[in-house]
């Protein structure tokens, strides 16, 4: 049998097609599937412009985001929650409610590194009014826990409320290991038992800048409900881990405290502080965080959504809806 030149060429080309096809095809499918976490084309910087003045697409019912500005943080908070449909929308009778403020630093609230205590007190009062069985307010602080919880003013501010407990958790007996189904770098971690056993979770972060995470709003606040977070800086990607934890801890309401914001120098300060006297409330954790970017020139020059890695990862993990320009954002000054 003789093999002609043509035969050889045929065999080689056919073989090449068969062997090469999968890699070529897979490249097509990859292009169709936005798995690249940093894929920039999905997020448009212009989405953040033109926020103002867009008519609300939904005529009735509570808005997507409530932004209240006023002198008294407690009044602002109550107005924001009322606008979101009232606390009864989130808290049913007999609920175990968790409010997770930021109590991470032994600084007075004027330093803008921790949540304004009056905001938390207003939330606790409303939750109790709505029939909460008890309200648990806690953090796993960065600074020495028992000092931080006193200096940040939370313990004092919440005094006198029945069934309301302000505490810090450091010991591993207050955490339980869970698996994070949607986690990419954080498959398993130990989370505060109070979060796991809560009927209603309310996130009450303070809006501030952050050295390694760029900004610290709602999603970043969940680092205070996790026991082991040093590995987030040394073994796994911090930004991905923040997005992972946000897929697992699902607050019914996020109240972003922008009474005063640490524009840069965060999260521990000292840094320039701007008195915004605002409260941002929403049910969508991602929408609240993304709206938070518009509050100040974070880090000095301001950030866009694509500048914040953990926002990017959160969008890809569908933690919430990031298209706030299409949302019903109601701004009221009280």
């Amino acid at each position: 049998m003789s093999v002609t030149r043509r035969d050889v060429l045929r065999i080689l080309s056919a073989g090449g097609l068969v062997l090469g096809a999968p890699s070529v095809l897979s490249r097509f499918s990859e292009a169709a599937d936005p798995k690249d976490p940093m894929a920039p084309e999905k997020i448009d910087a212009s989405e953040l412009t033109g926020l103002e003045g867009k008519p609300a697409p939904k005529p009735a019912g509570p808005p997507d985001l409530a932004v209240i500005e006023g002198a008294d943080p407690a009044t602002n908070t109550k107005a924001a929650v009322d606008m979101m449909g009232g606390m009864r929308r989130f808290v049913s009778k007999g609920d175990k409610v968790v409010i997770k403020p930021n109590m991470g630093f032994g600084n007075p609230p004027e330093e803008a590194t921790t949540t304004e205590p009056r905001v938390v007190r207003a939330l606790a009062e409303m939750a109790l009014e709505a029939g909460a069985k008890r309200v648990m307010i806690f953090d796993n602080p960065c600074h020495r826990a028992d000092i931080a919880v006193e200096i940040c003013g939370m313990k004092k501010a919440l005094q006198g409320l029945d069934d309301t407990f302000v505490f810090t958790i450091r010991s591993s007996r207050f955490f339980r290991e869970v698996s994070i189904p949607k986690g990419k770098v954080l498959k398993k971690t130990k989370i505060a038992v109070d979060i796991l056993e809560a009927d209603t979770i309310i996130n009450a972060p303070v809006a501030k800048s952050h050295g390694s995470a760029y900004v610290s709003f709602g999603m970043k606040n969940w680092m205070g409900a996790v026991e082991e977070r040093t590995a987030w800086h040394t073994l796994i990607d911090l930004h991905e881990a923040i997005a992972d934890i946000a897929t697992f801890i699902r607050p019914k309401l996020t109240v972003l405290d922008a009474t005063r914001v640490l524009v840069s120098g965060g999260p521990g300060g000292p840094g320039p502080i701007k008195n915004l006297k605002k409260i941002v409330a929403g049910t969508d954790p991602l929408a609240v965080d993304i709206y938070g970017l518009t509050l100040a020139k974070w880090g000095g020059s301001g950030y866009r959504v694509q500048d914040i890695p953990h926002f990017q990862h959160a969008i890809l993990r569908q933690v919430g809806d990031h298209r706030i320009e299409r949302m019903d954002i109601r701004k009221v000054a009280v």
Partner: peptide, 14 residues
């Protein structure tokens, strides 16, 4: 006195 520079940017910033 704590000069609030870069990560703290000059105080007051605004």
């Amino acid at each position: 006195p704590a000069e609030r520079n870069e990560s703290g940017s000059g105080y007051p910033y605004f």
